[in-house]
Nucleic acid binder design. Structure first.
Length: 415
RNA sequence: GCUCCCAUCGUCUAGCGGUCUAGGACGUCGCCCUCUCACGGCGAAAACAGGGGUUCGAGUCCCCUUGGGAGCGCCA
């Protein structure tokens, strides 16, 4: 099989940074191969003359061509690669194309520290070679490293694996993604209520495309993906678009599956623990399941879903949002009283039957449906917006619904 | 400073010399649907960074400018 073998992700160490001197790891890694290298050695202090001018410090090669016998006594030297000074090093990159770096700009990198432990550059090369890694895919920030590592491969006489350096993702403001600019771990996206499939879909589309396809499953992405169609320019992370995509996924996910996803994500959502406890204690999960179709239509994230479902666990008497309070005029309250009467007489409790009652109340009063539905929404949810009011009625159930309506209708007397 | 990379609507992108009066998606703005908010439907505004070439013909190829980005540790 010609399956690509990928090594560690860039930046993720596979072993302790510094293996204890004499440990197997460090030793095994430096003993046999280094004899193959053309080595330079260096003094401990590397000159940093140009720092003040803003130029990066480079090894000046002071020990490069001197015999080992010249080395000062009692000083542990670092071992550097004796890199070519002429010509150029070529990285044939699957994404970046043919990248040519002049050798004069690459200095002799350290292979072994003065304490004998290998550096990242050496370790990666040796490791990848030992593991039979065929493809190295990482961010463009490693492009220069690719050239340096290529030099090590060449010095060792090993085949260079295929390289692909993909663009970095930038923040919404165009600055590079940093801790301050939204560089977050996956857990953060879970806490924000994003579905894994939606996040994968969004991320896949960043810097890569398959014609005009915007929404595709992970399986399709795997099938379609082609490293060659990865672009070379950096993309900005757009959380609004992620949200839109997530909303799409929520709507498309079958209720049972979404419910399961919600339950597993709940402990990670802000206030989720408390909400879960409440849902468990009040036995309102059934109501939640009933309301889910209407709820998911209105939510872009699981966090919004949770918020939308709050009316299910709120307890009587409901706290009214100011906007909802305004809906409850004296006229509205008397309409609620009439609605309560009609609803209470219902032999069956269903969304359809409730709708018939409410429409009849509106008709008799000579008002539009909204004039009854809006106050009803306020009474039932304490808010100005919610899923369809008949679905709310159905989800809440007869007893709770009538109780909440009564709470508000009753206040007519007080006015 | 040196080296390398990038450049199409606000954003993600399609485009791989003629099919581009530049397509799609998110966002924005209208209209419709409607018990609210959403969803959905319809429609609109919105881009080839600038300048030189090459070519019968350039968003597509080359060069320069400008603007972004990355790298330049005995860090990974």
């Amino acid at each position: 099989m010609d399956r690509p073998r990928l090594g560690r992700r860039a930046g993720v160490p596979v072993r302790p940074r510094r293996a204890p001197p004499g440990s197997r790891g460090a030793d095994a890694r430096r003993r046999p191969r280094l004899s193959l290298l053309r080595l330079g050695r260096s003094s401990r202090r590397c000159a940093r003359p140009a720092q003040a001018e803003g130029r990066a410090p480079r090894y000046d090669g002071r020990w490069r061509d001197r015999p080992a016998s010249d080395a000062p006594e009692g000083r542990a030297p670092a071992i550097r690669l004796k890199a070519p000074t002429e010509g150029e090093t070529v990285v044939d990159d699957l994404v970046q194309g043919r990248v040519v770096i002049p050798n004069k700009d690459l200095d002799d990198l350290v292979l072994l520290r003065s304490d004998g432990t290998p550096t990242y550059m050496l370790a990666v090369v040796v490791d990848d070679h030992d593991m039979g890694v065929t493809h190295v895919i990482r961010g463009v920030d490693h492009l220069t490293n690719a050239a340096r590592q290529t030099q090590i491969y060449q010095a060792l006489g090993w085949d260079v694996p295929k390289m692909a350096h993909i663009p970095l993702i930038h923040g919404p403001d165009g600055a590079k993604l940093s801790k301050r600019h939204g560089a977050l771990g996956v857990e953060a996206y879970r806490e924000m209520g994003f579905l894994p499939a939606a996040l994968r879909n969004y991320l896949a589309r960043l810097g890569w495309s398959h014609g005009d396809d915007e929404i595709f499953s992970t399986e399709q992405a795997v099938e379609w993906f082609d490293i060659g169609s990865v672009g070379r320019s950096a993309a900005r992370f757009d959380q609004v678009k992620l949200s839109n995509l997530n909303g799409h996924y929520m709507r498309e996910t079958p209720d049972a599956d979404l419910l399961a996803a919600f339950r597993t994500a709940l402990p990670f959502l802000p206030g989720g623990e408390a909400a879960a406890a409440k849902l468990d204690a009040t036995g309102r999960w059934d109501a939640f399941a009933l309301a889910l179709p209407g709820l998911k239509e209105r939510a872009k994230t699981l966090v919004e879903l949770l918020d939308g479902a709050r009316f299910l666990t709120d307890e009587r008497p409901l706290a009214m949002e100011p906007a909802a309070e305004q809906l409850l005029t004296p006229e509205a309250r008397s309409l609620l009283a009439a609605t309560h009467q009609g609803l209470a007489a219902l032999p069956e409790w269903s969304a359809a039957d409730a709708e018939a009652v409410v429409r009849r109340v509106a008709e008799h009063a000579g008002v539009k449906l909204g004039a009854v539905a809006q106050p009803l929404r306020a009474a039932l949810t304490g808010r100005k917006t919610s899923p369809g009011i008949f679905d709310v009625l159905a989800a809440l159930g007869r007893e709770e619904s009538l109780g909440r309506i009564e709470d508000q209708a009753r206040q007519i007397q007080k006015v």
